[in-house]
Write a protein that binds this DNA or RNA. Sequence first.
DNA 1: ATAATCAAAAATCTCGAGAAAAACTGTTGA
DNA 2: TCAACAGTTTTTCTCGAGATTTTTGATTAT
Lengths: 236, 236
Amino acid sequence: MNDLVSSTDLASEADEPKTLAEAAYRQLRRDIIEGVHRPGEKLRVEHLKDQYEVGAGTLREALQLLVTDALVVAQGQRGFRVAPISLDDFEDITRTRVLLETSALQQSIELGDDTWEANVVAAFHMLSRAEEKLVEGAKGTREEWELRNRAFHEVLISACPSRWIRHFQNILYHQSERYRRLSLFRQPIPRDVHAEHQAIVDAALARNSAEATRILSDHILRTLDAVRQLPADFIN
Amino acid sequence: MNDLVSSTDLASEADEPKTLAEAAYRQLRRDIIEGVHRPGEKLRVEHLKDQYEVGAGTLREALQLLVTDALVVAQGQRGFRVAPISLDDFEDITRTRVLLETSALQQSIELGDDTWEANVVAAFHMLSRAEEKLVEGAKGTREEWELRNRAFHEVLISACPSRWIRHFQNILYHQSERYRRLSLFRQPIPRDVHAEHQAIVDAALARNSAEATRILSDHILRTLDAVRQLPADFIN
DNA sequence: ATAATCAAAAATCTCGAGAAAAACTGTTGA
DNA sequence: TCAACAGTTTTTCTCGAGATTTTTGATTAT
């Protein structure tokens, strides 16, 4: 077998980019999330079109796509700008994520079949391996851990039939990833998330909805504290 | 006084369009919601650019903006298409709306001040007047009722501090409006929503969170039944 | 020194034409 | 009758240049 999960998202993005605009969109998104373009920074089309090797109109489209994800804000006739960050915003993102993700998990636990269980176990295994490599300190493992962490959370709620909840959760995950990168840069050794993930998996497979959502809730909210402890100038 | 509420949305759209692309975007959005462009219909740039009197690139941008609202879907290199509709989708939209809107109302009731109460009462009054005109059967009142109904629901949750919840709720409201128009076309005399709205207002002002969210929940879910009773070919 | 005014410069927004891809149609062969 | 193929037509995607708006900088007056 090749891939157990099949992502049928509202805005599918699993496959590779089929247009120049989308390619530029993804590069830009990565650069924004990784902090290459700082929050609040002005995004001048004239400069960026050379940097990303596309025409002005094409880059414009890419920027427009990023507005969808709320990673870029368009201000009337005054061009584009990287979405600013703030502690309040992150708190908002986190709490909204809790609301959506717990609801999705609850439905997943209720409706998930054997394949879902298998996917959860598999994703957890992948994540655990990435965590091991992370403490070993090899390079490039941060990227892999991020990917697998995201996959794990996605698989957890994959049995939730609501495409809209998954869509919104997707957007919020990208948003929070931006903040998490900031905190991880400062505090490169993550807290013991393994046990938390394990507990979520156990509760989920035991079909203990209340317990699973409670742990997931705490798990997500804990990232709030990590960002709260950042020096103020990190949040602009 | 002119306007009590001040909408500080994530993607503000209260003011008038400042660019041709945004103007085209709003016209297109209205036409899609009102059913001028049917669900699933292909949106050819070449035809539409004449109809909306803008350049090809500009219309392209407008379409891209509509993808944000999920009213238009972009398919790789095969152009744009009006987002299809289905009963499953509407059920999803409605249930997600309930999740978000009840949470927002709960926070609103918890945090709303006197001004919020005044806004709620005012919006309810405006809506009630529109309902009276609606049963009288004057023309153009449908449009006004829609606007005031939307304003009422918006004001109810306006004291919720979460910009993200309000943002998502906004998107979902546009979506459900499409479906509601279909059902209202068939069934032009709306059910007795006045009593429901009254009950919500009473519970909200009494700061009875549990009661208010329960009524709001039923209120939103009731629209589901209305659409369910439509003949199958209305939902494609 | 501060504020207001006006001109120059930079950036954005808009448009139409050319290149690339997809859809269509008619023909040929099994 | 059906399937496969190739040429034609349509549509989308991309690009650079011109028009419009915003921003910047210098000058002048209070």
